[in-house]
């Protein structure tokens, strides 16, 4: 019996690492599920903005997943979506004030997009599809995985756009001074093109893997 318990425990642990891993790659919120596109395109004109946005979103995702998972047996089914949105909005208000306290400049450059984390489909979809049905531990792992996956995707875009658009990464000059920067990369159109090319790249990799 002891063995069975142990095995069961092992299985459960296995599962919680799975929840963590899946957000990073297999179910990456941006590249695979195509969720939360607005911030992905809008604030990735520099790597710093992308990182800050990724961390802020991960924070809100983690906190709301925790709270929703704890309250999952108390929230009536009919009003669940509105309750989730209220919980998310509360944490977004918190992170909005936190960012303002840390760096006014960063707050300015992210602008309305911090408040707009409320309507990031990624967070609501995790709440509805995962946290409302799973235990606290799994929800935390899920939120961490998805949050890191989201931040990673934002950085993918942010770094490419900053390098090509201004020749820098996190404001360090990496391309030679005389590099003619591609202004289009920091304009809105550049966001669409960069994401399109990342998706093309991943599709290509998938295709090649499927063939071999």
């Amino acid at each position: 019996m002891n063995v069975a318990v142990k095995e069961n425990k092992k299985k459960r642990e296995q599962k919680s690492t799975d929840e963590f891993i899946k957000g990073l790659w297999k179910e990456n919120p941006v590249f695979v599920q195509v969720l939360g596109m607005c911030p992905v395109l809008a604030v990735t004109n520099t790597s710093m903005n992308a990182l800050a946005m990724g961390l802020a979103t991960s924070f809100v995702l983690l906190m709301s997943n925790i709270l929703i998972s704890l309250l999952r047996n108390f929230i009536p089914k009919q009003v669940r979506i509105s309750s989730y949105i209220l919980i998310i909005a509360t944490f977004v208000t918190v992170i909005d004030y936190v960012i303002q306290a840390i760096s006014v400049e960063l707050h300015k450059s992210l602008g309305a997009f911090i408040s707009l984390i409320v309507v990031n489909c990624l967070i609501l979809s995790r709440a509805e599809a995962f946290a409302s049905k799973n235990t606290l531990k799994h929800s935390v792992m899920d939120a961490l995985g998805m949050g890191i996956g989201f931040t990673f995707a934002l950085l993918c875009l942010g770094v490419v756009r900053e390098v090509l658009g201004s020749g820098t990464v996190f404001q360090f000059q990496i391309l030679p001074e005389n590099f003619q920067s591609w202004i289009i990369m920091i304009l809105p159109a550049g966001g669409f093109f960069t994401l399109a090319f990342w998706l093309l790249f991943f599709n290509y990799l998938k295709e090649r893997k499927a063939k071999s």
């Binding site: 669409f192 399109a196 998706l199």
Partner: peptide
Amino acid sequence: PKIVKGTAITLLIAGILSLGFM
């Protein structure tokens, strides 16, 4: 081509539209 089908081609079009709106 198969690899651009779906979201990728839509985003490329959106980028061109966005250039137009500039």
